Amino acid sequence: MSKIIGYTTGVFDLFHIGHLNILKKAKEHCDYLVVGVTIDELVEYKNVKAVIPYDERKGIVESIKYVDQVVPQTNMDKMEAWKELRFNRMFVGSDWKGTDKWDRYEKEFAKVGVEIIYFPYTKGTSSTRLREVLQKITR
């Protein structure tokens, strides 16, 4: 039986329990977990600047015991990542399920045998929420 390679991506800014949950759950569904950490220049897709620089975010994710390999996420094209990494499963938060973008990804990836697994979004915890709290404290 061949090894199941899993893949997930994220900014992983202001690392919190939601980040840890997705990495732990992902590792439970694969033998080898590759994590794409979004480079600083690409973080702007969320209309914010990362609080923690890429190299430090990468170092944090590399230190998590569930993670086997960290790669830079240099663009949002998941199919391009698949062409390079050849993963069998991709993990993403359930907040993306049913969106036009991820419905298209499901069809594209089904053609190459990649299963997309959605994990429940950790309610009440997000880097956006942490950033808002920090801004209130520092004002």
Results as ranks from 00 to 15, higher is better:
Gly10Val: 01
Ile17Glu: 13
Ser127Phe: 07
Tyr66Arg: 05
Lys111Ala: 15
Leu134Gly: 11
Asp31Arg: 09
Val61Met: 07
Arg57His: 08
Tyr45Gln: 13
Thr138Gln: 15
Gly93His: 02
Lys49Gly: 14
Thr9Asp: 14
Leu42Met: 11
Asp100Lys: 14
Gly113Lys: 10
Asp100His: 06
His29Tyr: 08
Leu14Cys: 11
Asp40Ala: 13
Ala50Cys: 12
Asn21Gln: 13
Glu80Cys: 06
Gln73Tyr: 04
Tyr121Met: 13
Arg104Asp: 13
Ile137Ser: 04
Gly59Phe: 10
Trp82Ile: 07
Val34Arg: 01
Val67Trp: 07
Glu62Lys: 14
Val70Asp: 05
Leu14Met: 15
Glu84Leu: 14
Asp95Ala: 01
Ile4Leu: 06
Gly10Gln: 03
Lys97Tyr: 12
Glu80Val: 11
Arg86Gly: 06
Ile39Ala: 09
Arg86Glu: 12
Ser127His: 00
Met90Asn: 09
Val114Pro: 02
Ser126Thr: 03
Arg86Asn: 14
Ser2Phe: 05
Lys46Arg: 15
His29Pro: 00
His16Val: 07
Pro72Glu: 02
Ile60Glu: 08
Lys49Val: 15
Glu44His: 12
Glu115Thr: 05
Leu134Asn: 02
Asn88Met: 01
Tyr121Ala: 08
Tyr7Asp: 09
Lys25Ile: 00
Glu62Cys: 13
Tyr45Ser: 12
Val37Asn: 00
Gly98Thr: 09
Ser63Ile: 08
Lys97Phe: 03
